[in-house]
């Protein structure tokens, strides 16, 4: 028995339903079969995902109704976590549904003590202008007699919480810009 997983416990319990039902009738005066109760996941669309916290890579199921996340719990089919999750993984729902999440581009002007909300259409060209100005001002084409073609005034940090495809595009774009101060969480 000690080697039985929880999943097997459930299966085993199912296999003995007939006997268990009789036994439970003997143990209680209440009615034998309670009506099924509505589940908050009834009628939802399920999508699999991988936990965004540590590196174990646990699987989760996200249940969605009317475009809203209503439940997130472990993916029982995932061979690593078999449905289980720690406190952080279990709390992923409050990442998806959280009033503190950023919903607008914010801009802080020099010396200001507050944010301003901005549209993307404004922010992207503004950022591109800053990047270009700094790159062009700090670009080092040569170091003595050597060609180095690097941008010394811009640095990049982060990526361990991004998807591979996002990391890849950042790695590609940063090198095209000549950035050499490119680092992320793996270093610290």
């Amino acid at each position: 028995m000690s080697n039985l997983s929880r999943r097997e416990f459930m299966t085993l319990s199912g296999a003995t339903t007939g006997g268990a039902l009789l036994a439970s009738l003997a143990l209680t005066t209440e009615s034998a079969a309670s009506p099924r109760l509505a589940l908050k996941t009834d009628g939802t669309t399920e999508t699999s995902t991988i936990c965004p916290y540590c590196g174990v890579g646990c699987g989760l199921i996200v249940s969605v109704r009317d475009g809203k996340v209503v439940n997130i719990e472990g993916d029982p089919d995932h061979p690593v976590n078999e449905g289980s999750l720690c406190s952080k993984g279990m709390a992923l729902f409050q990442i998806a549904v959280n009033d503190r999440r950023l919903q607008k581009v914010r801009y802080r002007a020099p010396g200001s003590d507050q944010w301003q909300e901005k549209p993307w259409e404004w922010a992207l060209p503004e950022i591109a202008n800053r990047v270009k100005a700094t790159r062009d001002a700090t670009f080092k084409a040569r170091d003595g007699d050597k060609t180095v073609n690097r941008t010394e005034g811009i640095a990049g940090l982060g990526g361990a919480a991004l998807d591979n495809e996002e990391c890849y595009l950042w790695s590609k774009l940063a090198r095209a810009l000549g950035i050499v101060y490119l680092e992320h969480q793996a270093r610290i």
Binding site: R6, F9, M10, L12, A20, E73, P76, S84
Partner: peptide
């Protein structure tokens, strides 16, 4: 019970 990674919690028929 479902969340428990180490089977410290298990669920099943009481007599079992």
């Amino acid at each position: 019970v479902k969340s428990c990674p180490t089977d410290a919690l298990v669920f099943g028929d009481r007599e079992i």
